[in-house]
Write a protein that binds this DNA or RNA. Structure first.
Lengths: 159, 159
DNA sequence: TTGTTTTTGCAACTGTGTTGCAAAAACAAA
DNA sequence: TTTGTTTTTGCAACACAGTTGCAAAAACAA
């Protein structure tokens, strides 16, 4: 499954293409930016500042990672994924860097493993707001057990 | 509107009744607890630890407020309202202390004034999750302009 | 290659969340 | 009402996310 994703990605966006992406966004191409963007593209889950750190090869400064994410955020390359705990980030569908659609999707946070995933294909249903409320953005966070963890529970119960 | 709420409340839960509430929950009745609970009941919005502070008469310690909220949370008296920033808290419908229903409701965070409100009557629509996902809790946060702020914008534009 | 502009790393500070511990308060029983 | 026990509070302290200023280093355009 991970392999599939990697293949999908490599044929979709080669490392060398990333610098082109930065040019499009009028950002200088740097090792840190390339690496962070690549990780965010490759991972299928939303990552926080702290989540990101262990994936980085060179021990880049916290502030740098922070500013990089902020920059990506400003440019619309990534979006915030509020998941109750620390803010997490995921590549925006709109950016063209993700194979996901650009619609607001549902995020699922597993109470067991703690991972937060964007659920592909699941969209936030229309919500009827009271008169006068002007919605701009919506975020639906569902918490519970993810596929992997709920399977583990079922298996355990069967023993 | 605020007045209506106050009236609704005073006829619904008098200060002296609060100590009874604590007994029900096997909690000792203390000034801090009574005050915090009363504020949470009276306010129609979710409050964070910091939001709560200026409403407290005696300058109670941050740790005390924190532990009080945690205790209320454990007992199910209040619930967390994730709103992107700091965690906020609101009285649970289930507790019987709120006139709201006990269903999971939608929260609206205003980008202008920053207030987060529980939208009464608006429920989270059913979401169809992929096979294997076991939902336990859902939180829908809509961001945009609230009634008051969007009205202000409209008025301003008309000038 | 060079001069300019942007990014990085370091240090430092704010604010939230969290815990240990002894003093103070609440409560149950006498 | 007083007393002994249990819980809560306030203080101090720490961890960590978020954030910023500043000078050195890197990226880039000419």
């Amino acid at each position: 499954m991970d392999a599939v994703l990697v293949v999908k990605l490599s044929s979709f966006m080669k490392p060398t293409q990333l610098s082109g992406v930065f040019k499009d966004y009028q950002l200088r191409s740097t090792p840190v930016r390339e690496e962070i963007l690549e990780i965010l593209i490759r991972k299928e889950m939303a990552l926080s500042l702290a989540d990101l750190k262990p994936h980085l090869s060179g021990a880049s400064d916290r502030a740098t990672v922070y500013r990089t994410l902020k920059t990506f955020l400003d440019k619309g390359i990534i979006h915030r994924v509020p998941d109750g705990g620390n803010t997490k980030y995921a590549v925006s569908g709109r950016s063209g860097l993700s194979t996901r659609d650009g619609h607001e999707h549902v995020h699922f946070k597993c109470a067991q493993c703690g991972l937060t995933r964007c659920l592909e294909g699941v969209r936030i249903p229309e919500v009827r707001l009271p008169e006068g409320y002007a919605p701009r953005e919506a975020n639906l966070l569902v918490e519970g057990l993810c596929q992997t963890c709920s399977r583990a529970v079922t298996t355990l119960a069967a023993v």
